[in-house]
Design a protein around this nucleic acid. Structure first.
Lengths: 220, 220, 220, 220
DNA sequence: TATGAATGAGGCTTCATTCAT
DNA sequence: AATGAATGAAGCCTCATTCAT
């Protein structure tokens, strides 16, 4: 009511001469549109229309459609891995740490369907754009490192069996968390949506965590 | 002049006046091209060029691009599920049967990357085209039925715990088999290709089978 | 008046389904427009507007702007060299033959300013497109061959000195005939148009022929 | 902090606040780029990128693209004619003077291919920009004056025939010197590069000088 | 059943130029 | 004197699709 609107960045006119804001806005919208339609299915015009700037600015800042897509992909990976990094498992016993990691990953993937879709789309493109990005590769090895740390601790405590491959373990966690989101449309079209209710998903998540834990546990 | 050209499929004219053959050829090529580029990424011209007929015939037989895509999807599901149906597990004890089913699924997915890619693509499209196809739904419930049979037998023998959901079990098997193929491009771009060598894949497959079996086994 | 207009190819409607005619029409207009504005200065829309078909057909038949330009260049060379080939000098004594060739070339260049402009434009482009065309190269060696024949005969009769290089001779004839057309705009802007009146051009042409002849004549 | 940075032209800041230097730099780069790509083929962005200032300054100092091109053309003519003016032929006998002038012109053109290209480009544009420039016209009449002086002296000594037109003579010298540079790309694409070797060019130049001299010499 | 020719709508991108400081 | 940010207009080209036989 009595808001004087100082430095209002969203109000019309308040965002002129704000390069960073313009780029961020484009990136945000583009992420949504690319995730929805894929690379070739996306229309630059649609992105522009949903942006607070013009189509021209997309080319001004990102060069071309592929350039924008590449940046969207990078930003998506960065954001998701950043979210993962916030999870601190160092203080927990290894079994508990791994369990928490799986649970978190499962939920995290569910919470970021746009990211999942972008990765799917990138797989359709044979990971062409991801391969060119050093940024992304760097960000991802951190995930492996964290897992390796848990494995080492688990081996030391005797909870985990020896010779576990962190990459293979990551593969298992990812598969079970990723598929849940990526293949939900076809899966529910074929077998119904019961598996995607809140309770079913919670049970599934716990099941998944149990499966992963069982696979690392020392066989007596 | 009076050259009969009998049964020569490669010679010019050998396939003319062969509607079924022309359609099959179009479908085969279209499967490859759609699997490679996705729906919007595919060019009717590319399909036509790799076909032994012309672009005009694609429209003649399939109406439009979406019609062709829908037929490709149906054919792909039919072919893959048909391959699965050839697996006869009825004579085996339930544990063995499930183990064989998982192993087979893992290998079968690996052997049909184009199918996997088509399913991925269909997921990007929110399963729009799959939903319209009654054919596909019918074909897929068979997979659940077979799994339900194994579960029932496992419960009877006491090998499996009670209350197993065949759909959830199918979900687990699918997740671990599907991701392996669908996300291979991004996964190997990020973490290298070691996990995709023949030996590593065999170990992974056995690991996966063990995980699934552990998840159904009766807890003592 | 009582013309029934049978097979009228120019009347509206008479040219449908006439691929060769459409292509020829595009090529003719494109030649004029490229000659007027150069490669980058030309607008495909302008060509299309002056054509009896649409812009779309330009791409249908010629691929892209550069493809059209390349074809225009080829056609221009072919047409001009074809005109030259119609000149029969075999029956004439060598001095007379060479004189006639120079005179003809000078007039021929004047009569085809569009061709001259296209060659100028191609030189601005470092002959990039000409280099790719085998057609053009083939057509041009004929000009050298004809000149070589005249030189040989002149040496035999003793009219010409020995060791004449047909390529260098061609260079001289070309230079004096080409510049007259190519640099007419700047030259007349700087020094007036008197040199380009009909009579002055005739005198210039005869002067040029005399210069060339003097350069090949045996020095006593 | 208190770094004076005196007379350092390369260090950042050394050329700031140097309007004349900035303009000269723009002009120099623009000359190269226009000569390379023509008027419509040139991108202001390319000029700006190769300049030590920004695109904005080009507009600041030269108004628009055409204004810059016009200035480039003027500067090019001025520079080349200035080079010619340094040639002092007054002390030589007329035959020798003319011979030296032709030889010099031939070499001078070869040494300034960018100028030749700019003139070609201007001819493609029908000399539109040259016509508007009084500066250029003034500079060029000097060339005719000098030639007229030689002719007068040659007529007086009886070496040259009567009634020679200095403009026509200039035309001949120009044609043979200009074509050598302007049409080198197409000519060598068609007939090879042998004519453009150092030795062949020297012989060609002497040939050209001989041709021009023969054309003015009194016929006995 | 088959086909070469043709096309409208719309997509991506570029370019010279101006705004606002 | 100098500048980073912004832009409208227009260019090239592609695509699925239909026409006419």
């Amino acid at each position: 009511m009595d808001n004087p609107l100082p430095e209002n960045e969203n109000a019309k006119g308040g965002w002129k001469q704000d390069p960073a804001g313009v780029q961020a806005n484009i990136l945000e919208i583009a992420t949504m549109v690319f995730a929805e339609h894929g690379l070739s299915g996306t229309r630059i015009d649609e992105i522009a229309a949903r942006t607070r700037t013009s189509k021209r600015m997309i080319y001004y800042y990102f060069g071309d459609k592929e350039g924008l897509y590449a940046r969207v992909l990078e930003a998506a990976y960065a954001k998701v891995r950043e979210g993962e990094a916030s999870l601190d498992l160092d203080g927990l016993p290894p079994t508990e740490a791994l369990s928490r990691l799986v649970t978190f990953t499962f939920d995290h993937h569910r919470a970021h369907p746009d990211f999942i879709r972008l990765v799917m789309i990138e797989n359709v493109h044979q990971a062409d754009y991801l391969q060119k990005s050093d940024v992304i590769r760097r960000v991802n090895t951190a995930a492996i490192d964290r897992l390796a740390a848990i494995i080492r601790r688990g081996e030391e405590t005797g909870d985990f069996c020896h010779g576990l491959d962190p990459v293979a373990l990551h593969w298992k966690i990812s598969a079970l968390s990723f598929f849940n989101v990526s293949n939900r449309p076809t899966f529910s079209a074929l077998f119904g949506t019961t598996l995607f209710s809140e309770t079913a998903q919670r049970r599934l998540r716990d099941d998944v965590a149990a499966m992963v834990l069982a696979s690392v546990r020392k066989t007596p």
